[in-house]
Amino acid sequence: MQNIINGVAQGSVYALVALGYTMVYGVLQFINFAHSDIFMIGAFVGIYAAKWTNGYFPPIVQVMVVTLCAMAFCVALALTIERIAYRPLRTAPRLNVLITAIGISLLLENGGQVIFGADPRQFPSLLSTTSLLNSDELVLNNIQLTVILVSALLMVILHWVVHHTKLGTAMRAVSFDIEIASLMGIPTNQVIVFTFAIGASLAGCASVLYGLSYPKIEPLLGVMIGLKAFVAAVFGGIGNIMGAAIGGIILGLAESFAVYYISSSFRDAIAFGLLILILLFRPAGLLGTFRREKV
């Protein structure tokens, strides 16, 4: 039972980051490697925002302000990257875009090490940890509950945006076929910009949630989280929003059970083992549909 709570809390952070991967992949068919580093930058912005807003607000409001700062900064960063690095390559082969994304990712990581220093930083504990439930077999604290609730709320909002607004319909159309969508009068560039913005804002929010539960923040933080979130996205079926959410939670659960029953040192291998298994038996992911390539 305890494993389930830990797993869901961890998994919802993966899910939020995975959504960013899966949305960009759905629209542009490329793996946005820089996404994980946007997440890392978000965590650092969170640290600075927390420092500056300290004492002005009551804790709950401060958390909100810090989260909004991180989200806003991540969105601005993602849009700049999209404009400078990805848009000029819209018609280039996919591999080039991928390499550019890796280059941007390296740039952010190394730039982060220069600006923030390579040492881990402490994320300020904005909410004091209080146990909500504390019996022999079950521990649930307020931070875990916040993480789970906020992620669930964001996913519901996202689901509403994608399925019940004009913008969401346009996004789905673009991911179905970008050329036909633009022929139908959908401003594809704007839709792509919105997709990046939504993905980055989710990453920004996830980074603050992550900082609250695991206060050790360093410039290479994004690498592992990013890989795992990506695994979660593929697991659920890349390009599929519901799949990313479910994939993230399943991955979190699998890891927390693996730590409990096997060994904590194999924790990272679980994610990738799971990935290879799903690709062998259900190559399109859990919820994905396999699209046949046409000539």
């Binding site: 690095a85 000029p88 390559l89 080039n96 390499i99 550019t100 890796i102 280059g103 941007i104 390296l106 740039l107 990581e109 190394n110 730039g111 090490q113 220069v114």
Partner: peptide, 15 residues
């Protein structure tokens, strides 16, 4: 700054 310059030059080559 060397790794920053290195990764920036990678992006530049791609662009």
């Amino acid at each position: 700054y060397r790794m920053v310059i290195f990764s920036a030059s990678l992006v530049a080559v791609m662009l």
